[in-house]
């Protein structure tokens, strides 16, 4: 087991799942450093436009490859000039005939899909592309999508739990999105249904008499209380789909 795998296991990060590593628009021929599950990774586009992902370290003296430059499919460390292929193999060290095998570094399976770059932490040979979370609405001509990336100084599970937790709407978002009760701690009951299927959990919450905040009033086109239905699907390790529907009562 690699040091990276040991460290990841110790922290409890699942290996055989896809993690979103970047917006597709962030990745170019200019190397991008991103730390995923405590592992620094360098992402770049090869000459054919594919995304490559390697450990962000040169196997020679451990300088970050993200400070290097990309040429075709390869990336060159700008400390002493070692060159690595997209498979992590060190293919050239300046001023010597052969590159040592020991200088090679880890590569990751990386796939661009749905406007994001997804990274597989396990053995690249075992990467299951069918397991990438599906976001088909991003490719729907009748819809319009906007992409965001935020940096949060908190454990990823806390942030994910925030999205799964509808109850905070009444308090944290009372002015912007709105609430069922106007910050009444005993809000009207909400119909909630759940369904767990494999590594997915679906939840539908339906609340009548929802008081919309300033922002949601504009979305819904009414300031009167509405029926608010929030349909959410969570998918391991932490992709959350959330659909909000507002209807007049």
């Amino acid at each position: 087991m690699s040091e990276e795998s040991r460290a990841g296991r110790a922290m409890g990060y699942l290996s055989h799942v896809w993690y979103c590593a970047a917006l597709a628009t962030e990745v170019s021929a200019q190397p991008l450093r991103r730390v995923v599950c405590q592992q620094p990774v360098v992402l770049y586009r090869t000459g054919t436009g594919d995304v490559a992902a390697l450990e962000d370290r040169c196997g020679h003296r451990q300088a970050p490859l993200s400070r290097g430059r990309v040429a075709g499919d390869e990336i060159q460390c700008m400390y002493h000039g070692s060159i690595f292929g997209k498979d992590g193999r060190c293919i050239r060290v300046p001023n010597q005939d052969a590159a040592p095998k020991s200088a090679s570094i880890r590569s990751y399976a990386a796939v661009e899909r749905w406007g994001y770059v997804w990274l597989w932490r396990g053995d690249p040979a075992g990467a299951d592309r069918d397991a990438i979370p599906a976001l088909p609405w991003t490719a729907n001509a009748g819809r319009r999508s906007i992409y965001f990336r935020f940096y949060v100084k908190a454990n990823f599970q806390l942030m994910a739990d925030n999205l799964l937790d509808d109850a905070h709407m009444d308090f944290v978002h009372r002015a912007s999105i709105g609430s069922r009760s106007g910050m009444n701690a005993d809000a009207p009951e909400v119909d909630v249904t759940f369904e767990t299927s494999g590594d997915r959990v679906n939840c539908v919450r339906r609340s009548a008499g929802a008081c919309l905040g300033k922002m949601a009033t504009k979305w819904a086109g009414t300031s009167r209380p509405v029926i608010h239905t929030n349909t959410q699907m969570w998918e391991a390790p932490n992709t959350i789909h959330s659909v909000h529907e507002f209807k007049n009562e």
Binding site: Y13, Y19, L23, V36
Partner: peptide
């Protein structure tokens, strides 16, 4: 939501609308 460290993460979001397209 992607872990960075034990106390930091990357929050990727896509907001899709079927109105005002």
């Amino acid at each position: 939501m992607t872990p960075e460290t034990a106390t930091s993460c990357h929050y990727f979001m896509n907001w899709t609308r079927d109105f005002g397209i």
